[in-house]
């Protein structure tokens, strides 16, 4: 078995890398794949919190690299989903605790054990970023429809390209009403600037906050628009690349629905 290493990156902080990692990981695991999500944000870990596993951490990735424990000892099994595992980051070290070479070495072991290895990249393009992308086969660049996020994503795409890693774009936190009003960049505007393949569009969703606070995976919440979008993204990563991309639309008002029924409007 040779697992695929996918790094989830963005450059800018707070665009939803960790949420995306947890959700895509959960969706892939629900689809029957053996998945490990690795928190690479050493010193500022929070993937464990998002997954509701912070009280089970004994060892972390830095311990694995320093040979203080075996890989299996640092791997925490998800409470809710079989096949989903987490390797947490250390909270007491900083990014210099490990090197890209260390990651290549550990990744070899991970590849042999898992189908998918998702690396949750820290914000920034320094050492933490270099560690996270060292062994990656492909990348998902998360971007929100804001000019600053697009700018940073552009830089990250350039850096990934220089390392010969193909990146695909995930546009997160789209607010369809604002896009329709013209107050927010549309996904097309973002794609025009970044010009890479889309892997999915996720709309802003209150359920994300609920999921983050409770540790219940987003993709297990029924009726969550973002959860469904992440499930489709996982399918695209998992051998269905041609699954059509759904553009988030604002729900129509009652009058709008009646109008479209009788043939007015869109």
């Amino acid at each position: 078995m040779q697992g695929r290493i996918i790094v989830i990156s963005s450059g800018k902080g707070g665009v939803g890398k960790t949420t995306a990692t947890a959700s895509i990981g959960a969706a892939l695991a629900l689809a029957g794949k053996k998945v490990v999500v690795v928190d690479m944000d050493i010193g500022l870990r929070n993937l464990d919190v998002v997954m509701g596993l912070e009280n089970r951490i004994v060892f972390n990735i830095v311990d694995v690299i320093r040979n203080k424990c075996k890989l299996q000892q640092a791997t925490i099994k998800s409470r809710r989903i079989d096949n989903l595992y987490l390797i947490p980051a250390s909270q007491s070290d900083n990014k210099d605790a490990i090197t890209p070479q260390d990651m290549v070495r550990v990744s070899k072991k991970l590849r042999a054990e898992f189908d998918f290895i998702l690396m949750d990249c820290p914000a920034g393009i320094e050492r933490g970023f270099e560690n996270a992308i060292a062994a990656a086969d492909e990348a998902v660049v998360v971007c929100t429809p804001e000019i600053s996020a697009v700018r940073d994503a552009d830089r990250v795409i350039g850096l990934l390209y220089a390392k010969e890693i193909t990146s695909r774009l995930l546009i997160n936190r789209i607010v369809p009403i604002m896009v329709e009003r013209g107050d927010m960049l549309s996904h097309q505007d973002v794609v025009d600037v970044l010009s890479i393949d889309l892997v999915g569009l996720v709309q802003a969703d209150e359920d994300v906050v609920v999921s983050t606070n409770t540790g219940i995976p987003l993709v297990m919440q029924e009726n969550s628009k973002a959860g469904q979008a992440f499930t489709r993204i996982a399918m695209r990563l998992n051998g269905h690349p041609d699954l059509p991309i759904e553009v988030p639309r604002a729900p129509k008002s009652l009058w709008g629905r009646i109008a479209s029924k009788i043939g007015f409007g869109k």
């Binding site: 700018r151 552009d154 830089r155 350039g158 600037v193 010009s195």
Partner: peptide, 24 residues
């Protein structure tokens, strides 16, 4: 090709780019 944020291109004389030049 596309010139992305963070890239710096220097030419001694003229510079011609067929493609888009992104902000940054």
């Amino acid at each position: 090709g596309r010139i992305r944020s963070g890239q710096r291109i220097t030419a001694k004389k003229h510079l011609i780019i067929m493609g888009d030049v992104n902000p940054g």
